[in-house]
Design a protein around this nucleic acid. Structure first.
Length: 597
RNA sequence: GCGCCGAUGGUCCAGUGGUAGGACACGAGCUUCCCAAGCUCGUAGCCCGGGUUCAAUUCCCGGUCGGCGCACCA
C-alpha cells in the first residue's frame, strides 16, 4: 500500500515551493486571504507547460475545439444549471458542541422528508422544530436553532447601481453548455464532438487547506464531449492496454480491494458502465503518468450514489495518494442530458443536433388545422387555448376526433364542445428525414492546481551523491520549467564566453535554458536539480579544442559528451519525448560518470 | 465554521519585558575545479490591531495566515 512505501513530502514540497518560486500565499504583506495563492516564476511556467500538455492531448489530440468563455455569468444561467440551489448549503450549528451540520441532511435523516435540499430556510427551520431534530454528535436539541445559508458561489453585481446579479463560475463547463447550439454549428452538426476550456473557476470554500490543493480560485481544464448514445462508440485502439487501478462502488461497499484491470476488460465486464468514461479513464491514466504522477499512487474511484453531483449519472474520480490521503485530481463524469435539457427548458432553445434517419420515414400523423374564423366568434378569448388543446389531443388521443358531432376539450377547467368540422382534423402522411437528438455528455474535468502540486510531490526525491545529500524534482522534460542549465566548468573569460554563446544558441532555438557561473560546478548542478531541470550542459577546456560539451542527466547524474552542433536538436527531441537520455547515451562516445553504488 | 498547535531574515529554527542569534540560501571577492569544498566581506527578520507596562518581538485579548482533527468539498 502507498501508506507504507511512500512517505509524504508535503512539508518539504511546500518549503521548496516557497523558497524556489513555485507558489506562495498571495497578498502576504496585507496578511493574506486563505485560499489564494500566486504561482512564482517556476510554478507559472510549470503550470503553463502542464496546460499545454493537456491541450495537446485532450483538445488537439482528440480533434476537439477549445473555447474561452467569461468567468462571470448572469443569475439565470445558474438557476437553470441547478448550481444556485445546489451550491447553497443550509448550515445549522449546534449551540452545545459547536459543530456545523447540513440542515437539510438533518431533516432528511429523520426519514420523514425525502428531499429537503430544495426547501426554503424557513421551511427547514419549521421542520427541524416539528421533527425534533437533535445534534448527531452530542444529542443536543436543534429545534430552535437558526439555519444559515452558505453559498459556495461568489456573488457579484453586473453594472452600476442595483445592476444585475452575477456569479463567478464554479466550473468552466457552463460556458460550453450555454452556447451549445452555436458550438454544434461550428462542429458542422456532427456528433460526436468535444469542446474544451482551460480557465479559472471560483468556489467560496468553507475551509481552504493544504496549500494549493484546496483553494478558492482555481484553474480547471475541462472537456465536454457530446455523444449520440445510440451510435457513438469509443475507439479503444487509442487507449493504452495496460492496467489501471479501479475502485468501484461494489468494492468500496464490499471487500475494499482495488481492481487492477485494463479499461477494455473493465467496460466489457460492466465495472465501468459508460464506455466513454472507460475510454477517458484509459487516456487520463496514460497522460497523468507521462507527466510524472506515480502510477502506484493513482487510482480511479467511482462515486458512491449519495456522493454524486446533482448533474451526474455516474462519476469516476482520478485520485492520487498524497501522503496523508487520497485526493481528487480529476473527475470523469457521465452528465447524461442533464445540462442541455436544463438550458433548453430555461431558454426555449433546442439544444439538439439533427440526426438523419438511415432511410427517411413515412409516418401517418394525426393533424389539426383549427378553423379560427369559427372558433374566434364562438369562444372569444379562449379560442387560442382551445386550438392548443386540440393540437395536444390530436397527438395523444386521435380517437377523440372520431365523432360526427363535437370534440370535447377541457380548457381552463371548463368542458367545451367544439364542432368536429371546425377542428380541421385529418390523418396526414408525412416524410421525416431525421430528428433532433439531445446528445449525452461525458466530462473529463481536471484540477490544474492539484495536478501541479501532485507532480511536485510525486517527483520529489532525496538521495545521496558522493556522500552528499541531494534533493531533486524528477520532472519530465516535457513540463520542467527549465530544460537545461548551461555552465562554464569554472569562471574564466574563455569558458564563460563559450558557454554564453551556447546559451544564446539554445535560447534562439526556442529552448528554455539557464546560464550560471557562480560557485563551484557541483552547487550549480544541485540548484538545477532542486527545481527539476532535467539536463545540464558544461563547457570545459576540451570544448575549446574539439567543440564538444558534457550533457548531464539529472536523475542518474550521468554525463555524456556531445558535439555542440547537435545539442539543440537533441535537447528538443528529449523535451518533446522523441528520445530519452538512454537513447542519446547509446549514441554518444563515452559515459563519464554515474550514480554511486 | 468548530477545536488543538503554531507564526522571528529568502528558507528552517533558537531566544529575550530593555527591539535579536545560528544554519542554509543569496550577493561581492579570493582560491579550488565535474557534483552543495574553504576563506573574507556583505544584504536581510520579530504577522496585524488593542490592552498591561516607563518600556512588548516576548505577557493578555481579538484578528489574520498556516498545519492537523471534525464538519464541508455541489
Amino acid at each position: 500500500m502507498p501508506e507504507e512505501s511512500t512517505p509524504s513530502h508535503h512539508q518539504q514540497v511546500v518549503e521548496l515551493a516557497k523558497r524556489r518560486g513555485f507558489f506562495f500565499p498571495a497578498n502576504e504583506p496585507y496578511g493574506g486571504v486563505a485560499g489564494f495563492w500566486t504561482y512564482g516564476p517556476r510554478g507559472a511556467t510549470l503550470k503553463h507547460n502542464i496546460e499545454s500538455r493537456w491541450r495537446e492531448r485532450f483538445a488537439i489530440g482528440e480533434g476537439h475545439m477549445e473555447i474561452d468563455s467569461p468567468t462571470i455569468f448572469p443569475e439565470p444561467v445558474f438557476e437553470a444549471s441547478g448550481h444556485l440551489r445546489d451550491f447553497t448549503d443550509m448550515i445549522a450549528e449546534c449551540p452545545a458542541c459547536g459543530r456545523a451540520h447540513r440542515a437539510d441532511h438533518l431533516v432528511e435523516a429523520t426519514g420523514e422528508v425525502a428531499d429537503a435540499e430544495g426547501l426554503s430556510i424557513t421551511a427547514i427551520e419549521a421542520l427541524m422544530d416539528d421533527l425534533d431534530v437533535h445534534c448527531p454528535d452530542c444529542g443536543n436539541s436543534l429545534a430552535d436553532v437558526a439555519v444559515e445559508e452558505f453559498n459556495l458561489m461568489f456573488k457579484t453585481a453586473i453594472g452600476p447601481g442595483s445592476g444585475e446579479t452575477g456569479y463567478l463560475r464554479p466550473e468552466t463547463a457552463q460556458g460550453i453548455f450555454v452556447d451549445f447550439n452555436r458550438l454544434a454549428e461550428y462542429a458542422r452538426n456532427q456528433l460526436p464532438f468535444g469542446v474544451t476550456q482551460i480557465g479559472r473557476g471560483y468556489r467560496n470554500e468553507i475551509s481552504p487547506r493544504r496549500a494549493i490543493i484546496r483553494v478558492r480560485e482555481l484553474t480547471m481544464a475541462e472537456l465536454e464531449f457530446f455523444i449520440d448514445p445510440e451510435r457513438d462508440e469509443p475507439d479503444f485502439s487509442q487507449v493504452d492496454d495496460g492496467q489501471v487501478v479501479l475502485y468501484p462502488v461494489a468494492a468500496q461497499e464490499g471487500d475494499r480491494e482495488h481492481r487492477h484491470l485494463d479499461v477494455v476488460t473493465a467496460v466489457d465486464e460492466g465495472i465501468i458502465t459508460n464506455a466513454w468514461v472507460g475510454y477517458f479513464i484509459g487516456i487520463t491514466h496514460t497522460w497523468l503518468t507521462d507527466l510524472g504522477v506515480d502510477p502506484e499512487r493513482l487510482r480511479f474511484r467511482q462515486h458512491l450514489p449519495g456522493e454524486r453531483a446533482h448533474y451526474a449519472r455516474d462519476c469516476w474520480d482520478a485520485e492520487v495518494y498524497l501522503g496523508s490521503d487520497w485526493t481528487e485530481l480529476a473527475g470523469l463524469a457521465d452528465r447524461g442530458v442533464y445540462d442541455l435539457t436544463k438550458h433548453a427548458e430555461a431558454t426555449g432553445e433546442e439544444y439538439t443536433v439533427f440526426r438523419a434517419y438511415d432511410e427517411p420515414k413515412t409516418v401517418e400523423r394525426a393533424m389539426v388545422d383549427p378553423d379560427m374564423a369559427t372558433l374566434g366568434p364562438e369562444f372569444g378569448e379562449r379560442a387560442t387555448a382551445i386550438a392548443d388543446e386540440l393540437e395536444r389531443l390530436a397527438a395523444t388521443d386521435p380517437d377523440a376526433f372520431d365523432t360526427d358531432t363535437a370534440v370535447v376539450v377541457e380548457v381552463g377547467g371548463d368542458t367545451l364542445e367544439v364542432p368536429v368540422e371546425a377542428t380541421g382534423f385529418s390523418i396526414e402522411t408525412v416524410t421525416e428525414a431525421g430528428e433532433g437528438v439531445r446528445p449525452e455528455v461525458v466530462e473529463p474535468s481536471f484540477g490544474v492546481d492539484r495536478l501541479v502540486y501532485t507532480v511536485l510531490e510525486h517527483s520529489y526525491h532525496e538521495d545521496e551523491i558522493d556522500g552528499e545529500e541531494r534533493r531533486y524534482l524528477a520532472l519530465p522534460p516535457s513540463i520542467a520549467p527549465t530544460l537545461a542549465g548551461v555552465f562554464p566548468l569554472l569562471r574564466s573569460d574563455d569558458l564563460s564566453e563559450r558557454a554564453r554563446m551556447i546559451e544564446r544558441h539554445l535560447a534562439d532555438a526556442g529552448l528554455s535554458v539557464a546560464y550560471d557561473e557562480t560557485g563551484n560546478i557541483g552547487r550549480r548542478y544541485r540548484r538545477q536539480d532542486e527545481i527539476g531541470t532535467p539536463f545540464c550542459i558544461t563547457v570545459d577546456h576540451q570544448t575549446l579544442e574539439d567543440d564538444t560539451v558534457t550533457l548531464r542527466e539529472r536523475d542518474s547524474t550521468e554525463q555524456i559528451r556531445l558535439d555542440t552542433d547537435s545539442l539543440a536538436a537533441i535537447l528538443r527531441d528529449l523535451r518533446d519525448g522523441r528520445s530519452t537520455f538512454e537513447d542519446v547515451r547509446g549514441d554518444a562516445d563515452s559515459v563519464m560518470r554515474g550514480v554511486d553504488g
